[in-house]
Design a protein around this nucleic acid. Structure first.
Length: 671
DNA sequence: AGGAATATGATGCGG
DNA sequence: TCCGCATCATAT
């Protein structure tokens, strides 16, 4: 996107001459023109809305200023995109390194300031443009609220704009009632394999950079965006995704509670372990090497210590062609030399230290003095339709001690709700395999034990070893991922023939699964794409016709997996929209009463693929848990139930399962 | 020769 | 074996 770009203009921190752009820069203080434009649109009022940002950084003594906006759908040429991406990346780096401190006159680069300058709104009815300056806080807030309440809002990046609007003080953005068109979502739906970046990196650019042009380009892009408004009914996916985007903006605004003290303690502990292990390694092998370097570690293992080279995946790519030091290999070498164990421990400690750093530096102190992390949420970044999270990525927080740093505010507690074996249930539903369906309907005991027994022809509830249960689990998910006997054998550590036996047993027990996979592949070959049954989203898979076996195989695995993973993602999105309806005013489903959940007493704070995380008032937990259960379990009617596991606790890492009370209450209601 | 910026690969965390 | 994101080292 972007941007005008100049250097050495530290005197003009504001950066834009609003007086010269008075024609659309909030000259209409009375608001008459704005209100009239809204009125003219009537019920169908449509308004393009964008946010204009300005970032300032000190680089080698000079101030560099970038403008960025989220508004349009105009594609940009490769050079512009590259330049904008570079600028964005650079600023991100500076922010991370320099923090907010800008006092030094050293030549080190540092982030000085980043701000929202304002919002641009262009009315479809009259073509009139309004720039709402962030500095005019009350006016801007009031007008944004009117726009969200009365208009169909055309955006390029809905969650970014919702997030910025809420940060600007706008209240009452209700994802269940807001009508949004998001051009970027349309672009992603057409080509989901391209990761659509946000903000600065991926919108239009001003060729002739100057202050006034930044504003002029912003306006013309907003106007252009209006031409992308769909005529007639929008396809289901487009509407759902846009609503999800609004919900994600709200999610990002709220953030999730974080305990910096705890994170700091853990970081120090991890750091001590790193240093200790480095000393230990030095003693162990006699030389000082960088334990984080796979190359140096490999040299020590195989050249100095002469340990046996592992037969499996011994060689990496032909380019570097050095020996592997992956976990599996190192674990196998532990019995030969203690050094392998040191390397493993060192990697763990290094990883934990980096993670603590990453989360801690992105935590911000809220008004109440407590820290929160406002992750960026994306719904245009994955090929299958899952969400992703970044800066920091909250979907990859380790299941170890790191989760203890995520804490609910005083008086509140976390509720975590997980779908159980969701992809397996989707597979059962889509394939229509009677035996898999009835197995999942019975829902007694462990699902994977039952699968093992089904494969063996035993009663489903026969006792089974944990190891065989895990084999059943790996085999089932291997099939979801399109894994072949070779890969499964490697994972299980058994001969290929044995793995082949497990796969065959699964297919004998559940014959319709394979028939379904065959149908999916046939269809993918005919159309060169897969289409999701629930949302109608599609993903092109041109390689399905490749003459190269490995490419063709990959496309085939992607075909099957996209439908299963993507359908699970569709379910979760439906559940999230049902939730926005429960806490909002819009009706999304008949069995979720709008406003039935008190939105002041509970906040959705994160989604981790098959899990939703809420912060809830302590005395509201039982009632809220019932609502969550209804919202999630009844999101989609499959041929099998889609049960959730509920857990409650004051930190994300210390949750206790708590479903019996909720189950009883739910049964009472149903009876 | 060697620093800076960039791209890629290896590794590991989550689902 | 599918889908992500972050870090670190290394090659260019």
């Amino acid at each position: 996107m972007a941007l005008a770009f100049e250097t050495g203009r530290g005197d003009a921190m504001e950066g834009i001459d609003f007086e010269k752009n008075a024609a659309w820069c909030d000259a209409d203080h009375s608001g008459e023109a704005f209100d009239r434009a809204l009125e003219d649109g009537g019920e169908d009022a449509t308004c393009a809305l964008g946010v204009l940002r300005r970032d300032v950084a000190r680089v080698a003594g000079d101030l560099e200023i970038w403008f960025g906006y989220s508004s349009n759908f105009r594609d940009v040429d490769a050079n512009e995109k590259k330049a904008a991406k570079k600028a964005a990346k650079r600023f991100a780096t500076l922010s991370a390194v320099g923090g907010d401190a800008d006092d030094g006159d050293d030549d080190d680069a540092s982030a000085v300031d980043r701000a929202v300058l304002g919002f641009g709104a262009v009315m479809a009815s009259t073509g009139e443009a309004f720039f709402l300056r962030a500095a005019n806080r009350a006016t801007t807030r009031a007008r944004l609220e009117k726009i969200f309440a009365k208009c169909r809002v055309v955006t390029y990046h809905a969650q970014d704009i919702v997030h910025a609007a809420m940060d600007a003080g706008v209240t009452g953005v209700d994802a269940s009632t807001t009508r949004v068109v998001d051009c970027r979502i349309d672009a992603w739906l057409a080509n989901p394999d391209r990761a659509y970046d946000g903000g600065i990196a991926d919108t239009g650019a001003c060729k002739d950079a100057s202050w006034s042009d930044a504003l002029g380009c912003f306006q013309s892009d907003l106007t252009a965006a209006l031409s992308f408004v769909p005529r007639g009914d929008a396809p289901l996916a487009r509407d759902v995704e846009a609503k999800v985007a609004v919900a994600l903006g709200v999610l990002q605004h709220h953030g999730v509670g974080f305990d910096r003290t705890r994170a700091d303690e853990q970081r120090r502990a991890a750091n001590r372990r790193v240093e200790e292990l480095e000393r230990e390694a030095q003693k162990c092998i006699g030389v000082d090497i960088n334990l984080a370097s796979a190359q140096q570690v490999a040299d020590v293992l195989y050249n100095k210590l002469k340990l046996p080279t592992p037969s499996a995946h011994a060689m990496k790519g032909s380019k570097s062609s050095h020996l592997s030091t992956s976990v599996e290999v190192l674990q196998s070498l532990v019995k030969h030399h203690h050094f392998a164990q040191i390397v493993l421990n060192h990697r763990g400690a290094l990883k934990e230290r980096a993670m603590c750093d990453n989360y801690d530096k992105s935590a911000v102190i809220a008004a109440d003095g407590r820290a929160r992390i406002h992750t960026q949420w994306n719904n245009t970044k994955t090929a299958t339709g899952r969400l992703s999270s970044s800066h920091p990525n909250i979907q990859q927080v380790g299941r170890g001690t790191m989760r203890n740093c995520f804490v609910a505010p005083t008086g509140r507690t976390f509720i975590a709700a997980d779908y159980s074996q969701i992809e397996l249930r989707v597979l059962a539903h889509l394939s229509g395999d009677d035996r898999l369906i009835s197995l999942l309907r019975q829902a007694k005991g462990d699902v994977f034990v039952a699968i093992w027994n089904a494969g063996k022809g035993l009663p489903l509830d026969a006792p089974a070893e944990k190891s065989t249960r895990d084999i059943a689990k790996r085999t089932a998910y291997g099939i979801v991922y399109g894994q072949h006997a070779t890969g499964l054998a490697e994972k299980l550590g058994v001969p290929k023939s044995e793995a082949q036996g497990y796969i065959a047993a699964f297919h004998r027990a559940f014959p319709k699964v394979n028939q379904w996979i065959t149908r999916v592949l046939q269809r993918a070959e005919q159309t060169g794409a897969v289409t999701l049954p629930m949302s109608g989203r599609h993903r092109a898979l041109p390689k399905i016709h490749s003459k190269v076996f490995s490419e063709r195989s990959e496309a085939q695995r992607q075909a099957v997996n996209t439908i299963i993973q993507g359908t699970a993602a569709d379910m979760m999105k439906t559940a999230m929209l049902r939730w926005t309806s429960a806490v909002g005013a819009g009706r999304f489903a008949n069995d979720v009463a709008p406003g039935s959940v008190n939105k002041k007493r509970v906040t959705l704070v994160a989604q981790i693929h098959d899990e939703l995380l809420f912060e809830v008032d302590e005395d509201y937990v039982p009632e809220c848990a019932r609502a969550v259960k209804n919202v999630m379990e009844n999101a989609i009617k499959l041929a099998v139930p889609t049960p959730i596991k509920l857990a409650v606790g004051t930190s994300w890492g210390e949750l206790r399962e708590e479903d019996s009370a909720v189950d009883e209450a739910t049964h009472l209601i149903e009876a």
